[in-house]
Design a protein around this nucleic acid. Structure first.
Lengths: 246, 246
DNA sequence: ATCCAATAGTGTTTATTTTACACAACGAAA
DNA sequence: TTTCGTTGTGTAAAATAAACACTATTGGAT
């Protein structure tokens, strides 16, 4: 009850030292990052998986993850993993959720932060000859190692929602794409059919697709025009507020 | 360079033991949970803050947080904190984001998971006589301890978005409320004005408000009818898909 | 008792957005 | 030159959202 402001308990005030030792003593948690890397190929949404490097999970596939280094930010760790796996730096990356159940990992307490990344498979094909890595059709992913199935499902749900409110989808496409490819992308992510004319109307109305004056090549039918996504234009025109709706 | 885990190189497979020691050695990260507890009172959105218990941040306010225990899940930790502060168990709680910059905490590496909770201040008033705790108007929160300002802002942004797509808002109101209160709630969270007639039409159309046949008491004007939120009805009728819109 | 202040409660019209839907043009391949 | 598969395009109907004003009811003041 001595000096200062306590909340109902004397001695509530801590010094940095107090906390440092508290941190040190409670310090039994390891932190990892798992990346759910989506791609799009053959009109299908794909996810990049690696064979588990843990004997206990032999033959199972898992997400790309690693422990976070002591001097490494979470986002940095995620970018590092992406870089290691795909060789690229400037990727779309977003944190999705953190999974922290006590016994989610057999090696002890490991809390993992899930990140999603969307990449254009064509550009990154080269880097993943490694046969431990494989692009799986996202609709038949199952039985992953650890709790990665759950993480994957949360991430897929996140993607389905996010792709409708933000133009992430373009990261999955080549920089030049036809509207058909764009529509296929949405249809396969959302697992629905969309009306072609309305789809076009909608995207043209959003006014960030730029007709680059080229056409598809080597298609066995009438080629479609190619467009690119103009992020600047998007930024200018994007909506602020959508309205209560549930 | 010795033995272990490299990828794409023979010997990539690890045993549980390998990982355990790896986990133990990298184990320099502490984990905490910070709860952003929103309330609604006097037609204003409030957030519950506590005076920092760290001398270095004397006089600053901070979110309600604590270290996660080694045998405690993240969600459990968040519920524990809520319980400690409000005395209640069955609250709305949702994980928002994890903040893991290396030097966000002066005591060392502490990664924190932010949770948001929405509570009805009336019901919980009793528990927080503690004068270290205070309900702040959410629109004038500033200069919090640590990086809590940033966490708060992310949480507030989350709330503004989330409240439009999910009926969380009702958790902030008494179980019986008038439509005016509901509208005030949305107006103050979103910081906009809404048309009263359209607002009513919209919520009645959603068909989960039940007229309980009572009226407001002690208001210095014509009393409004009171309603309750029927979660069951909501569950049945909720929309699946809103549409691409950005 | 009357009046005033404040808010509740209510519908219609217009504008906007979304949906449904069909056909001609084009290129490739046979 | 015909066939196949796909592109590219517009309109009408339906649904949703936005704008907008008056009467009713209560409490409080006079």
């Amino acid at each position: 009850m001595s000096e200062v402001k306590t909340r109902e308990i004397p001695g509530r005030v801590k010094t940095l030292k107090n906390i440092q030792s508290e941190v040190a003593s409670i310090n039994k948690v390891a932190l990892s990052v798992d990346c759910v890397i989506f791609g799009f190929d053959e009109n299908k949404l794909k996810v990049l998986l690696i064979r588990s490097d843990l004997k206990d999970f032999a033959c199972k596939w898992s997400l790309l993850g690693d422990l976070v280094k002591p001097d490494e930010g979470l986002d940095d760790a995620a970018y590092r993993i992406l870089k290691e796996r795909t060789g690229l730096n400037d990727l779309y990356l977003e944190q999705v959720h953190t999974f922290g159940e006590v016994s989610r990992h057999p090696a002890g307490r490991v809390v993992t932060v899930a990140y999603c990344s969307l990449i254009n498979i064509q550009h990154h094909k080269l880097k993943i000859l490694d046969n431990e890595l494989h692009w799986h059709d996202s609709d038949i992913v199952n039985d992953l190692a650890f709790d990665h199935q759950r993480i994957f499902e949360a991430s897929y749900g996140w993607l389905q929602k996010r792709v409708q409110e933000h133009p992430l989808g373009f990261s999955l496409l080549p920089s030049k794409f036809s509207l058909r490819e764009l529509q296929n992308l949405y249809e396969s992510i959302l697992n629905i059919k969309l009306d072609r004319r309305n789809f076009r109307k909608k995207f043209f109305a959003m006014d960030f697709l730029v007709d680059i004056g080229e056409e598809e090549k080597n298609v066995p039918h009438r080629p479609g025009r190619l467009y690119k996504f103009d992020y600047e234009k998007y930024e200018k025109r994007k909506k602020k507020w959508t309205g209560i709706d549930f």
